[in-house]
Amino acid sequence: MSSKTAIKVMLWMLISVILFHLSIVLKIVPYEITWGGRLKTDAEMYVFESISILINLFLCAILLMKSRDIREFIPMKIVNIALWIFLVLFVLNTIGNLFAKTNFEKVFTLWTLISASLIWIILRKDKNEHKIKETVS
């Protein structure tokens, strides 16, 4: 899989995650079945969901910069560092979801594993393409 394809798949996944979080904010999906059942009030839900949506939008922006579909507003070195951080977070989240209390959250184990794999592909393909360019130069 190419880096460009991995980015496109990842963006579609992120859009669906954002829509999921919006459905929680709109109370289409009950927040009691998310966040490990730790949210107790609407106020907590709005804070957690807002942060989640912002983080997912940030990752979308990072991926769009990486694919050069939008102008870089932060240096590419920072984009790559952010992707490595997201890779670590997705791996840790995959492990956490394996031990989740609810089956609903355990389903997201596969989702976070795929996300981690896609980011790995994006980072590895970029590194390999960079090596090829250095060899040719």
Rank of each mutant, 00 (worst) to 15 (best):
Glu44Arg: 07
Glu44Trp: 06
Glu44Lys: 10
Tyr46Pro: 10
Tyr46Gly: 10
Val47Ala: 10
Val47Thr: 11
Val47Ile: 15
Val47Asp: 05
Val47Phe: 14
Val47Tyr: 09
Phe48Asn: 11
Phe48Leu: 09
Phe48Cys: 09
Glu49Ser: 12
Glu49Trp: 02
Glu49Ala: 06
Glu49Tyr: 02
Ser50Gly: 15
Ile51Ala: 05
Ile51Lys: 03
Ile51Glu: 03
Ile53Asn: 04
Ile53Leu: 06
Ile53Thr: 03
Leu54Met: 14
Ile55Asp: 08
Ile55Gln: 10
Ile55Trp: 08
Ile55Arg: 11
Asn56Thr: 12
Asn56Trp: 07
Asn56Arg: 12
Asn56Glu: 14
Asn56Phe: 06
Asn56Tyr: 10
Phe58Lys: 12
Leu59Tyr: 04
Leu59Ala: 04
Cys60Ser: 15
Ala61Phe: 14
Ile62His: 00
Ile62Asp: 00
Ile62Asn: 00
Ile62Lys: 00
Ile62Trp: 00
Ile62Ala: 00
Leu63Arg: 01
Leu63Lys: 04
Leu64Pro: 03
Leu64Glu: 02
Met65Gly: 05
Met65Thr: 03
Ser67Met: 07
Ser67Tyr: 08
Arg68Pro: 01
Arg68Asn: 11
Arg68His: 10
Asp69Thr: 13
Asp69Glu: 13
Asp69Val: 03
Ile70Ser: 02
Phe73Met: 14
Ile74Cys: 02
Ile74Ala: 04
Pro75Cys: 02
Pro75Ile: 03
Pro75His: 09
Met76Lys: 09
Lys77Pro: 00
